[in-house]
């Protein structure tokens, strides 16, 4: 998608032109919908790329514009500013924004049933549970410090017992032993470390009490009211994309070598590893994006431990029922 570079105005025109060439003549006009992803293009968003390429959105009557994310992009702010209709967010930030600042958000689905963030370390360092982190140096991206503090608290470890330093996206200090562990997507970094000739181990924060979703699908109350049908259509097409993608996680990433994954700086093998690793974190018997009552409760109670007080009405599961 070279499109996301350009101004939105140009973008929508270009996307419309692209869509127009695909839609058979006589089909009714597609409704525009814009989604804000959480990061640059990688396998984390494979289902959406597939659904775009295979025309799942178009056949649902949607003209989807996809915006990639980055370190300074706060997905929630993009939807407040009206530059996107829906955003993939982290539930802790979204719920905190609703609770503290009265932000008008609703969570209408969850891409990851289990949050893929975890503690990654080299096998030799013997860090297999939160308790092993005591007196160790842990690199954490500043935006995720909140999650790590929650996990430590849930496991009865004082925040001061672990030396937390910033993580600047590069695993080299971990491989060279300058830090003992880092917080990252466990679907991603272990592969990189293996490429460097070291062996990594990891555990999910989820498995140690921080039972949250990730990449929650968030909309504003306005959009929910005015574009309900389109949102359901988006959920349906995206779920179809993810299901197709998970039939064999190794099939799709190579097909995007010259499109979505071109020049991202990452390798296709890395994306295949990522895609396979994320499958068990996303799949659930009731279908991709599901939010069961038990899981919502688990999210709320885990976040409650760090003073983020959410409530059931911040989640709207009725759209999922309409898929």
């Amino acid at each position: 998608m070279t499109l996301s570079l350009n101004r939105r105005h140009f973008l929508s025109t270009a996307a419309a032109a692209a869509a127009a060439s695909m839609v058979p003549k006589g089909a009714f006009a597609a409704t525009p919908l814009t989604m804000q992803a959480a990061w640059i293009n990688d396998a984390e968003f494979a289902g959406y790329f597939l659904a775009m390429d295979e025309g799942y959105y178009t056949s649902e009557g949607l003209d989807l514009t996809y915006l990639s994310g980055g370190p300074d992009v706060i997905p929630e702010s993009t939807i407040i500013a009206g530059r996107a209709d829906l955003a993939l967010t982290t539930p802790d930030t979204t719920i905190k924004a609703i609770a503290d600042q009265g932000a008008p958000f609703k969570i209408i689905g969850a891409q990851y049933q289990k949050n893929p963030i975890g503690i990654v370390s080299l096998v030799d360092s013997g860090i297999n549970s939160p308790a092993d982190l005591v007196r160790k140096t842990l690199a954490v991206p500043p935006v995720n410090v909140i999650s790590v503090e929650a996990m430590l608290k849930l496991n009865g470890i004082e925040a001061g017992a672990v030396n937390i330093v910033p993580y600047a996206y590069d695993p080299t200090p971990l491989i060279k032993g300058e830090i003992d562990a880092s917080l990252d997507f466990t679907t991603n970094v272990p592969y990189t470390i293996s490429q460097q000739g070291a062996e990594a181990t990891s555990f999910l924060l989820y498995d140690f009490g921080y039972t949250t979703y990730n990449d929650t699908v968030v909309v504003t109350e306005d959009v929910l009211k005015n574009k309900r049908a389109e949102l359901v259509a988006w959920l349906r097409a995206s779920r179809k994309g993810w299901n197709e993608n998970f039939i064999d996680p190794a099939v799709w990433p190579p097909k995007w070598a010259d499109t979505h994954f071109k020049g991202t700086g990452r390798t296709i093998d890395n994306e295949i590893f990522f895609n396979g690793a994320q499958q068990p974190l996303m799949e659930t018997p009731s279908g991709i994006f599901s939010m069961s009552e038990d899981d919502i409760e688990a999210n709320l109670s885990a976040l409650g431990e760090v003073g983020i007080v959410g409530s059931r009405d911040m989640f709207d599961t009725t759209l999922l029922e309409e898929i």
């Binding site: 998608m1 070279t2 499109l3 996301s4 570079l5 990061w39 640059i40 293009n41 990688d42 915006l67 990639s68 994310g69 980055g70 370190p71 300074d72 992009v73 600047a168 996206y169 590069d170 695993p171 080299t172 491989i175 991603n188 970094v189 990189t192 470390i193 490429q195 460097q196 020049g263 991202t264 700086g265 990452r266 390798t267 890395n270």
Partner: peptide, 17 residues
């Protein structure tokens, strides 16, 4: 968060060590 640019390329490349 754009698709192209040396800064974007740098961000994507950082994770490779």
């Amino acid at each position: 968060g754009g698709r192209w640019g040396l800064g974007t390329y740098l961000l994507g490349s950082l994770g490779r060590g």
